[in-house]
């Protein structure tokens, strides 16, 4: 039983450890997750991409992506604004959870 509790606890902790911040737009086309290691995963209609953070100051962060058409992004978690550059810019309102 203790082992089972530990497994459940571990499973519950995985998302928290893996993604520090998650943001999604209202129709689920765009989402971004930022891990505590500053690893970023972006999902867009143009494909998904991984990215690395180059700026993280308060609620504002930005990074350079690799993969799909996405070249870079900026995110303001407080204002709920995600800009994705493909490289033409697309501004999306998102709701964020996490730190």
């Amino acid at each position: 039983m203790k082992v089972l509790k530990l497994i459940v606890l571990a499973l519950l902790m995985v998302p928290a450890l893996g993604a520090e911040i998650n943001c999604t737009d209202s129709i689920g086309q765009y989402s971004i997750s930022v891990s505590s290691n500053n690893d970023v995963e972006l999902i867009t209609p143009d494909g998904s991409a991984t990215a690395r953070l180059t700026v993280r100051t308060g609620s504002y962060m930005s990074g350079v992506a690799s993969g799909a058409k996405v070249k870079s992004f900026t995110l303001d978690t407080e204002a709920g604004i995600l800009r994705v550059f493909t490289p033409r810019p697309k501004t999306v309102e998102v709701e964020c959870s996490g730190k």
Binding site: V55, S62, V64, K71, S72, T74, P87, P89
Partner: peptide
Amino acid sequence: SLAIINPGFFSFG
């Protein structure tokens, strides 16, 4: 217009 000068990229439109 919006200008972004950033360690990883530059954007102006």
